[in-house]
Structure formats: structure tokens, C-alpha cells
Design a binder for these strands. Sequence first.
DNA 1: CTCCTGTCCTGCCGGC
DNA 2: TGCCGGCAGGACAGGA
Length: 281
Amino acid sequence: MPELPEVETVRQGLREVIEGAVFSAVEQRRPDLRTPFPDNLPARLQGRRIITIGRRAKYILFTLDDQSVMALHLGMSGRVLVMADGSAYKPAKHDHLVCRFDSGALFVLNDPRRFGMVFMADADDIMRLPAFAKMGPEPLGNGFSGTVLREKLAGRKTPIKTALLDQRIVAGLGNIYVCEALYYAGISPLRAAGALSDDEAEKLVQEIKKVLSRAIKAGGSSLKDYRTASGELGYFQFSFAVYDRAGKACPDCSCDVSRTGGIKRIVQGGRSTFYCDEKQR
DNA sequence: CTCCTGTCCTGCCGGC
DNA sequence: TGCCGGCAGGACAGGA
């Protein structure tokens, strides 16, 4: 599923089409995703105006005019369809939540694997929900620095790759951009998290910010193509240095791939890691 | 506390 | 062609 850049792109697409709109019809087509939908969700949305559409880590936050917030996580396979004119929409397989608006706009949440989640709470309470309470800093925010990362990693023996996927360390990274950032930082995914030097932590933070920013920019520029094509938001073309490129040469590779075997794929914590062991130490 | 494994669910892809 | 195993962008529970 979508990692932070994809979620941010979805958020931007939603803002353009349904921020300020009023829910006129809400159809919840099954009782749950990974967790149950909030009690009486359709009734709680009906007639409410969306004031702002924000984001925290991989959650999209819809703040409504009654000071309630709906938090949406897309899980692994969640997708969003949004159309300014939803009159031609026909329900498709795995369309679990269908919202129509007074403007004629349409929002559909589609999630085949149903690893997604929807929560609802008063604005004052939303960040106290378990999903948010222990979250680490936003990777693109000022609260995420080399110093902060070093503190969070201190004493940890777990591999840096695994640590960066822990949302309590930093909130919003997923498997793809962790692999990518470690590559650009020249740090092996196998290194003990607590053993990074100050300089390495600082470099890693900078590369995390850079790769996420580039991906968001790529998403923004592809946004209008997605909308004109199908209204579907969530995934876009972005060229990866190592992710899903096992056996291939890394971008500015000067080594002999026939000898080194190119980019490696290993499994850490049950998830694939891709890296170049010539360039990452 | 930390860390490791298993699990939720469907779809897709490669191999036989 | 069909069947089967393995894998997938996430996050949590439970046990050591």
C-alpha cells in the first residue's frame, strides 16, 4: 500500500475535489475492513461538511464541521476513486465505502485485501487513539532530525531497516522508501540501529527527506493524469534505485554486476529488503 | 522494555 | 489450460 508519498498524493487529490463539500449519501457496503467501521458511520457523515483534509503519517484525516475527524488508512491495497461528477459510477468489486456529495462529487474506498482502517473521534481526542498515541515524528517535519533519530535508535540492536519501519521511531515510512533511503545514505540495512554514528544518522535523515520529497513531487505531477483517466488515486510511477530490482545494477553502478550479482534481496522481519552491498556499509 | 513470529485478506505471477 | 506456492506497498497481538 501506499506509503507516505502516495497517501499525500491521495490527500491532495481529495482536497481538490471534495474539501468543503457536504456528504449527501453514504453507503457502507460491509461491516469492517481490518477493523470494524465506526458505529453508525453513514449517519455520522451524512449532512456534514468537510472542513479540511489533512494527513498524519499514512492516515488521511477528514475534519468535519461538527469537530469530528474521520481517519482513513489505506493498508496494503487500499485505493481511492474520486470524481467531481460521480453520476456515471457503477459499484465495483471491493468498493467498501461510497460517499456522494452535494456538489455531485463522489468518493469511493476500494480495498481488496481489507487491511485498511477507518476510525472516527472528536478532533480533541483523535491523536489519543492507540494508532496515533505512540507515533514518532513526521519524517518531513522539523521534529525529525539526525539528533532525534539517534536518540530514538539508542541501544537498539534491531537492524536499521527494521527500526525505520517501526512507526514509533518515525511515522510514515514503509518498505519501499526505507530501502531507497538506506541506499542513498550508503548505509547497510543490516547495521544495528543503535550503532549508527551521528553523521550517519544525519545523512540518513536528509536522504529520507529527499526521497520522500521527490516521490511526492512525482505524485503531484501525475495527479492530473490519474484524475482525467479514471479518478483513481494512490499509485504513480516513480523510479526506484533498489526496490524490487534484485540482480540488477544500482543507478550509478561502477561494479561488475556479473561478479557481484547486482542488487541483493534478503528478508528482514518477514519483509523483503533490497540493497547494494558494494555501496551500502 | 525489546525483539521476533504469526496473522489478517485477496490478487497476481511464475513454475510445473 | 489449470493448479499451487510464494509474494505483495501495513500494522498489530502475543510470546520469549
